[in-house]
Amino acid sequence: MATVMDKGAALREARFEVEEFNYAYADTLDRFDVDGWVEYFTEDALYHVIARDNAESGLPLGLIYCEGKAMMKDRAYALLNTEMFAPRYLHLSITNTRALKIESDLIHAVANYTLIETLVEEQSRVQQVGKYRDIFERTPNGLLLQERKCVFDSVMIDNCLVFPV
């Protein structure tokens, strides 16, 4: 009985850590700080944004597919220095966070996310709605993402996804 209680408490503690992490992560992206976004990941992390219909059909194509932090840095550099796109405001909400499993220093967690974009003289609209399937690593400097799989329901993309989610 005590073990069950401990496990529940450990998952609640982990959920709190993950929520704190996700709030900071969303704020970083809302500020377009994509250099800072890269620092939420471990060196060899996988970041995969995948349409739900592909994921459920076993098709691996990513809208974004980064194997390792180096690829994320290249995306961050491109967004900040070379890419052409319309100015916009970003509003990333992360909710329904749950820690599912703890394995030594790894936390398996899920959360829902919604990215609302607002462009000049346009009404705010949902750019992405999806679910994170995450593996976090507990490190001396706090949590880092070893894997973030963003499975999005909003399969029909409104023009393009510029910033990561």
Binding site: N54, P60, D158
Partner: peptide, 8 residues
Amino acid sequence: LLGVHRNI
């Protein structure tokens, strides 16, 4: 087939 992207 590796997958499909869709956009408007």
